[in-house]
Design a protein around this nucleic acid. Structure first.
Lengths: 229, 229
DNA sequence: GTCTATAGACGGATAGAC
DNA sequence: GTCTATCCGTCTATAGAC
């Protein structure tokens, strides 16, 4: 994390300094990524207001001033975390694009969302926290990125219904149920743990919950589960 | 909100001061209730750390020192809000106790939970926020109050399954789906609004969403919806 | 029971040496 | 690019007059 080379006097246009510039770029990239990961954890544990730049810097093993060198304000850092989370969410959402078979598409999407809750629960918490508090720092992401995606999926589901492949459910309500239920396993893990379900944190119980959720969702929208494996 | 009577010199044991003591008790009761309502709103909007006692006091129209007169610390106020929320949640949960008919019991419970999300969305947000951040201030509520309730309901659902009244779902997973989906309409209202669904905030669209959720849940657990009305 | 003033800790952000 | 020291604002909580 520490770099003691004297680099301040390297001329920008000196070809000989190219390796140093690359090294500086690599340092920046690596420190930014590390700070983003630590920020995600602290924001998840304490929220935007509860998190302090000192906590994030300490977790990253850097002095606070160094954090402000990479991210000018706490809010800028927070925004970057949210944008990064959207990218990950969007990759999971791709699962829904692939198939024209409703059972395969929907169960695949539920599994992808559960996998995301498993793999990145802290990110899910940051996202949930932001929305609960009014989503003021992600209006643009919601309206410009999530909304078009949702509308296109609603169209697809309504087409499936028109073709008799699904029961006449409200597509938006179905999507909210899928989001809410899958994200519950990340956001409310403390409650699930306290309620002492056997399905707490092991990969095995998480996989079992995943298949139970898939089953519930598939039956909810009036299709027959294809089973799996 | 203001009371200018000189009451400091009223002897505790003087029978003549009983009316004054009653008035003081009423003042306390009314101010505490008002502060609790304002605290719930500010905690919902900003979280425990983001909320300041100054904000809560200002919303209540009282000086900050007055707030600390009624609630010694911010955390004590927060705890009182959480306990109050549990009581309300518990009343809604009673719906589930009444009937031995699974469809009536489950759809009634879903409606009660949706009604709670509609009537007290700020409270739902405070609850969600607390759990997302680790539930450290409500471990006792979860393990001593919510857990026994959940276990008794799991038993009932498993009995229904054994009697062939429901599909063989995992009762806990079903309950998490109900909680997650119904609370989504309170906690994620900012997202629902931003995604521009027609079902935003009117009572009418909320009622429609309620019946859609009931339908989805009833079908998910393998029963036939009884319709309604 | 009400309210002003303030103590004391901690927050985000920056200056400037290295 | 790193890090110490510090500014200045806000926070919780309390003292003490009324």
């Amino acid at each position: 994390m520490r770099h003691d080379e004297a680099t301040a006097d390297i001329a920008e246009n000196d070809p000989a300094s190219a390796p140093l510039r690359r090294r500086k770029a690599h340092i920046r990239e690596s420190n930014e990524a590390h700070l983003l990961a630590c920020a995600e954890a602290v924001f998840a544990e304490r929220g935007l207001e509860g998190a302090s730049t000192a906590m994030i810097a300490e977790r990253a093993g850097l002095p606070k001033a160094n954090l402000h060198y990479y991210f000018p304000t706490k809010l800028a850092l927070y925004r970057r975390v949210l944008e990064d989370l959207f990218e990950d969410w969007h990759r999971a959402a791709d699962t829904f694009e692939g198939s024209d078979d409703p059972v395969a598409a929907i169960s695949g999407y539920v599994r992808a969302k559960m996998e995301l809750s498993r793999r990145r629960p802290l990110g899910s918490k940051v996202w949930a926290n932001e929305i609960i508090h009014g989503a003021e720092h992600m209006q643009d992401i919601l309206t410009q990125r999530v909304k078009p995606w949702l509308e296109s999926r609603v169209t697809v589901v309504e087409d499936w219904i028109a073709r008799g492949l699904l029961a006449p459910v409200n597509a938006q309500t179905l999507m909210y149920m899928i989001w809410a239920t899958t994200q519950h396993y990340a956001d409310f893990d403390a409650q699930i743990l306290a309620l002492g379900g056997k399905r707490a944190l092991t990969q095995k119980s998480f996989d079992a919950s995943t298949e139970e959720v898939v089953q519930l969702v598939i039956r909810a929208c009036g299709a027959v589960s294809p089973g799996r494996g």
